[in-house]
Each structure stands twice: as C-alpha cells, then as structure tokens.
Simulated assay, not measured.
Amino acid sequence: MNVMISISHPAWAHQFHHIIDILKKRGHKVKVLVIKKDKNWEILDQYGIEYTVVGEGTGNGKLEKAAILLVSTFRHWREAIKFKADVLIGRPSPMMAITAFLTGKKNIVYSDTERSVESLFFTKLFSYKILTPMMYRKDLGKKQMRVETFKELFYLHPNYFKPNPEDLKLVGLKPGEKFSYVRFVAWKASHDLGYKGFTNEQKMEIIKHLEKYGKVILSTEEDLPKEFDKYIKEVPHTKLHSIMSQAQLYVGEGLTMAFECNVMGVHAIFTSELSSGAGDEMEQKYELLYTIDNRESMVKDTKNNIDELLSKENIEEIGKEKLKRLLSDKKDFNEWWVDYLEKVV
C-alpha cells in the first residue's frame, strides 16, 4: 500500500510520525509532503523521516493563501501521480482532499479544529472518512467518525512518551525546579484571521505575575522586544514535550500546546476566543483546561486563574490524578489507524 501524507504544521509532524513508522514496519510505502511552517521540517529531520517540500509557507492574508492553495494543490496532485498513491491521510487539507478527488483515491483525516472553514469545506466534499474527537462541535454527516482520543495522544500517550528530568538542563533548570510554560502565537493561520492576542505590555504583565510562583519559559511565534529575550529558550523539538511535561502550569494562546500539556497531566490556561469541542471535553470532563475567552477582562481573568491554580502546593499531583482518568477513557490510536487503512484501502 502506498500512503501519502501532507504536513503543514509542527503538531502534524508529531502526530503522524508513529503511524509512519508502523506503516513502514508493516511493509507499506509512505510519501511525506511538507509545506513549511514553524520549522515543521526540522521535526521530521529529528525523527529521521524523509520528505518532499511542496511549499515554502502557508501565506498571509486571503489573497496570498488562495494563490498558494492553487500552486500547492497542483504539486500535491503531481506527487500523488508520481508516487502512485493508494490512499491519502493526515489532517483536513484542501490540497489533499482535491488531490484525492482528482486521483480517485480515499482521503482519511483527523480533525479537531472546527474553525478551519476552508479545509473542512473541501474535506467534507471529497474525503472518505473524517475522524473527530467525541465532543467535536460540528456534525459532518455520514463521513464523520467520532473516536475516543485526542490528537496529542498520537505522540504523547505513555506507550510512546517518557519524560526525562535531565532535559530541564537544556533550559537552565534543575530537575524538580518550579516553572511555568508560556506560549504566544503570531495569529497568521487562516482560522486566526480577524483575531488578535495580547499586547506586549500585557504579555509582560502575565509573565511577571507567573514569576511570583517560579521561573518562566517562553515560546513565541513572533518577534518580541528585547526584554522578553531572557525568557525565551531554544531547545530541540524532540525535547520540547519532555520539558513541557515538567511544568507546573501552561499559559498561552496556542491550543495545541495547551492540549499537549493536558495529556501529560499539566493544567493549562488557554487565553483565546478560538476554543473547540475537544477543548470543551478537556475542560468540562477532565478539568485540566481553563479557557479565558473574554478579551476585555482576559489579563485580569488569566491572573486570577494563575493564582487559583498555583496557590495549591500539590497542583502537579492533582494534574497527574486527573490524567489517570483521561488515559482510562482514551485509546492509543496509532495501531488502530493503520489497521483501519489496511481494512478499507
């Protein structure tokens, strides 16, 4: 079986690398395409996965994104023909969905982002099956299959992921030292259009508030003034989750990183209006996520939530107990996905 997958986000590289390995071990051929974003290709390099670059970026603004869509779709179709792909898998992608239609092959995807309007439009039209979390907010019709997992468990399930306390030395911390992990995004994704994040002054206010409870490690997609430099630590992508898993708290605008912390037993404060059904489940059922979506009072509400959580000396142990319940409900989905492909292709 020839399986083609497209990666245009760092989280996708993490999500599918075990599936890629399983496919290869079972004797299948895998073609990985990359549209460059946030150094996602470096993650594939670190995993030792070969790939073909079909795009140098995802673009800014509707016109540029539309132009890139046309060029990128052609490149996906060309690679599928050359590779003689039997099936296309990954996340919802207009390029992959259209390519599947043009080649007459099945497109099987996992979606946890309801607000990716363009991707979901083409995916609903041309995909064979759309796997979603249980509390996904949209009804996608007969093609939808709700499954007991979060995408972050594809690579952070305990069957695959083991944190190493020694990795904290990469960011100047000692094993067991208290710290919080902060993430600010650039607000340039297609589903981010029309939204904005904190001002630089507000960002620093939150960081200073977190410093009352320990050190702060900052990750950012955009360039920030020099006063933020002391908080920013560059680490290998494959070590990042090990470091995040040892944080006492996550605060940030990135929902994927919030979920990553959650499935490692770390509480997360998500500061954005762009929530999701998976977020509803993580917040309401497992109580690991706290969403702050009122822009007018977001700084105040974030600081209040920080105080509420970090005033508990055993907050890390509380998170690990909540994680046990989550893992008892959710599946390791990698083997299942490959089994499913072998069944339907």
Rank of each mutant, 00 (worst) to 15 (best):
residue 108 I to E: 03
residue 187 W to V: 01
residue 142 K to V: 10
residue 102 L to I: 05
residue 55 G to A: 08
residue 83 F to V: 03
residue 33 L to S: 01
residue 342 E to M: 08
residue 40 N to W: 02
residue 236 P to A: 15
residue 225 P to K: 05
residue 24 K to E: 14
residue 88 L to K: 03
residue 28 H to W: 06
residue 254 G to D: 14
residue 76 H to R: 13
residue 165 P to F: 09
residue 113 T to N: 12
residue 310 L to T: 04
residue 188 K to F: 07
residue 285 K to F: 02
residue 29 K to I: 01
residue 211 E to C: 06
residue 29 K to A: 07
residue 278 A to W: 02
residue 326 L to T: 02
residue 8 S to I: 01
residue 279 G to W: 03
residue 82 K to I: 15
residue 256 T to D: 15
residue 228 F to R: 08
residue 275 S to L: 13
residue 172 G to T: 00
residue 256 T to Q: 12
residue 65 K to Q: 10
residue 94 P to R: 03
residue 109 V to F: 12
residue 322 K to F: 06
residue 117 V to N: 01
residue 293 D to W: 06
residue 69 L to A: 08
residue 271 T to H: 01
residue 119 S to Q: 10
residue 56 E to A: 11
residue 279 G to Y: 12
residue 69 L to F: 14
residue 332 D to Q: 13
residue 51 Y to D: 02
residue 271 T to G: 05
residue 328 S to R: 07
residue 124 K to G: 09
residue 275 S to W: 15
residue 171 V to E: 02
residue 321 E to C: 03
residue 287 E to F: 09
residue 2 N to R: 15
residue 227 E to G: 04
residue 197 G to V: 13
residue 73 T to H: 10
residue 143 K to S: 04
residue 343 K to C: 04
residue 27 G to T: 00
residue 74 F to P: 00
residue 20 I to E: 03
residue 268 A to I: 06
residue 229 D to H: 11
residue 339 D to R: 05
residue 295 R to G: 00
residue 76 H to D: 08
residue 9 H to C: 03
residue 247 A to I: 09
residue 226 K to T: 13
residue 204 M to K: 11
residue 26 R to N: 07
residue 18 H to A: 00
residue 75 R to K: 15
residue 312 K to R: 12
residue 182 V to A: 09
residue 305 N to I: 03
residue 227 E to A: 05
residue 61 G to K: 07
residue 317 E to T: 11
residue 254 G to M: 13
residue 41 W to F: 14
residue 151 K to A: 11
residue 57 G to S: 14
residue 82 K to S: 13
residue 68 I to R: 13
residue 105 K to S: 06
residue 175 P to L: 07
residue 77 W to V: 12
residue 295 R to W: 10
residue 232 I to C: 02
residue 202 Q to W: 03
residue 47 Y to C: 02
residue 139 D to P: 00
residue 186 A to C: 01
residue 1 M to K: 13
residue 235 V to C: 09
residue 262 N to Y: 06
residue 188 K to D: 14
residue 138 K to P: 03
residue 280 D to W: 14
residue 327 L to M: 08
residue 171 V to I: 15
residue 265 G to S: 05
residue 257 M to N: 13
residue 190 S to Y: 14
residue 45 D to M: 13
residue 213 Y to H: 11
residue 43 I to G: 00
residue 73 T to M: 09
residue 89 I to Q: 11
residue 191 H to I: 14
residue 339 D to L: 11
residue 37 K to R: 14
residue 42 E to Y: 04
residue 288 L to A: 02
residue 215 K to C: 03
residue 75 R to A: 03
residue 280 D to K: 13
residue 4 M to P: 02
residue 230 K to F: 08
residue 120 L to T: 02
residue 63 L to V: 15
residue 60 N to K: 15
residue 259 F to Y: 14
residue 178 K to S: 10
residue 341 L to G: 02
residue 318 I to E: 15
residue 330 K to A: 09
residue 10 P to I: 06
residue 324 K to H: 01
residue 98 I to R: 07
residue 79 E to K: 12
residue 16 F to E: 01
residue 98 I to C: 06
residue 170 L to V: 05
